[in-house]
Design a binder for these strands. Structure first.
Length: 422
DNA sequence: ATGAATGATTGAAT
DNA sequence: ATTCAATCATTCAT
């Protein structure tokens, strides 16, 4: 209703303007010769139809002439009436402008990626934050992202310049169309609502172009990220001290090398790596150890001695200083954290001797046994003469699926030695 | 240049 | 959710 009335007022205004100068000699002549209003209208319509066949200048002149025609207001009002009827049907059709979910998704992603976010300074910070968040393992922000950031900045620049270009083109085109419509509104009824709709249509077209830009930008960012942030491509070997710590734990818990969450955290802190890296390491270590135990024997012996010596020192100190109640009190090589897994393995296997050993002592037990083997303390190991990593039923982590007899020299069936047994 | 070592990822199984 | 097993991609040693 509102736009209707507006349309009508616009019409009367126009009529009032043009009615003043009906001085076209041509139309005056025709009107005089024909003298009939019907023919008059027919003439006008014919001229309108012929406009497209004329040159631009001619058309402009003709248009002006028509605009000034005395019958123009009447014709205009007729057009308005017709329009009024059709507008109703049009209005029913349109009226849906849902924010495209896909473009919102792209926008969010670009924002999260630091591409479309705040400029320069904040952008890289956002990118780093996004990278850290998506990297799976948090607290990894120290990785050199300079290359990544440079490329991201490049993408961002391209994106922004393109976006600006599109926006400029869009507004230019919109202005052009609006001017055109405004100009046309003098000769045909155009409601403000219609102009609005036209603008919306234009914007929609341009936003679909923008979406393509956003999409390809997202793609570029994803490729960039997979190239630069994929940890596999930027893998660094852990430093010597870290692998030392991990190996110490592994071989001193060989009966059950499954560190608890707390133990993992402790190890991670000690090694300067993340908990998930610790998990990865143990996962890899277990599987690779199991796959080729023979290959790891040397290493196993090495760490067995190392930790056994530590443990021996610790227990010696402990027995000297304290009462034997608190044997291990947090020295290197002894993990005073809760060894949840050890209880279920260590105690049971040790019970063969009728012994009960506190779970916290299990690491020392593990390594001491191996160390004694190493130093030839106990029974001669037939064949290899080295520690053979077979286990009792309790230490079943090594033989879930793999008989592991392919690569490792199968120990004599009689001398089955778990690291927890004697 | 080549192969082993190694950290990370992935998909299935539990 | 964690682990296993296979695999990938990089690093290191030769």
């Amino acid at each position: 209703m509102d736009d209707q009335t507006r349309m009508m007022t616009g019409l009367t205004g126009l009529g009032g303007l043009t009615q003043g100068d009906v001085g076209d000699p041509d139309s005056v002549r025709k009107q005089q010769s024909l003298g009939q209003p019907q023919q008059d209208i027919g003439d006008i319509l014919q001229q309108i139809m012929a406009i497209t066949d004329e040159s631009l200048d001619e058309a402009q002149a003709r248009k002006h002439a028509l605009n000034c025609h005395r019958m123009k207001p009447a014709l205009f009002s007729v057009l308005c009436e017709i329009k009024e009827k059709t507008v109703l049907s049009i209005r029913g059709v349109q009226e849906e402008d849902p924010p495209d979910p896909q473009i919102m998704r792209l926008d969010n992603m670009l924002l999260a990626e630091g591409v479309s976010g705040p400029e320069k300074g904040g952008g890289s910070a956002a990118a780093a934050a996004a990278a850290a968040a998506a990297g799976g393992s948090p607290t990894d922000s120290s990785i050199e992202h300079s290359d990544y950031r440079a490329k991201l900045a490049q993408i961002r620049q391209i994106y922004h310049s393109e976006l600006e270009k599109y926006e400029q083109a869009c507004s230019e085109f919109t202005n052009h169309v609006m001017n055109l419509l405004r100009e046309q509104s003098r000769t045909r009824p155009i409601s403000p609502k219609e102009i609005e709709r036209m603008v919306a249509i234009i914007h929609r077209k341009f936003s679909s172009i923008q979406m393509q830009l956003k999409q390809s930008t997202c793609e570029a960012v994803m490729i960039l990220r997979s190239r630069f942030l994929d940890a596999r491509r930027k893998r660094r070997n852990f430093n010597k001290q870290a692998t030392e710590v991990l190996n110490e734990y592994f071989y001193s818990h060989l009966s059950n090398p499954y560190p608890s969450e707390e133990a993992k955290e402790e190890l991670a802190k000690k090694c300067g790596i993340t908990v998930s890296q610790v998990s990865n390491w143990f996962g890899n270590k277990r599987i690779r150890y199991k796959k080729n135990i023979g290959k790891f024997q040397e290493e196993a012996n090495l760490y067995a001695v190392k930790t056994a010596v530590d443990a021996a020192n610790v227990s010696a100190q402990a027995s000297q200083a304290n009462s034997p109640a608190t044997p291990n009190s947090g020295s290197p090589g002894s993990y005073s954290l809760a060894h949840t897994g050890d209880t279920y393995l260590g105690l049971r296997s040790l019970n063969g001797e009728g012994l009960t050993i506190a779970p916290s002592l299990q690491p020392q037990v593990d390594t001491l046994h191996r160390a004694t083997h190493l130093t030839g303390g106990y029974e001669e190991l037939s064949g290899s003469g080295l520690y053979t990593p077979h286990r009792l039923d309790a230490n079943s982590w090594q033989d879930t699926t793999n008989p592991h007899s392919v690569t490792s020299p199968p120990g004599p069936p009689g001398s089955v030695h778990s690291d927890t047994s004697n």
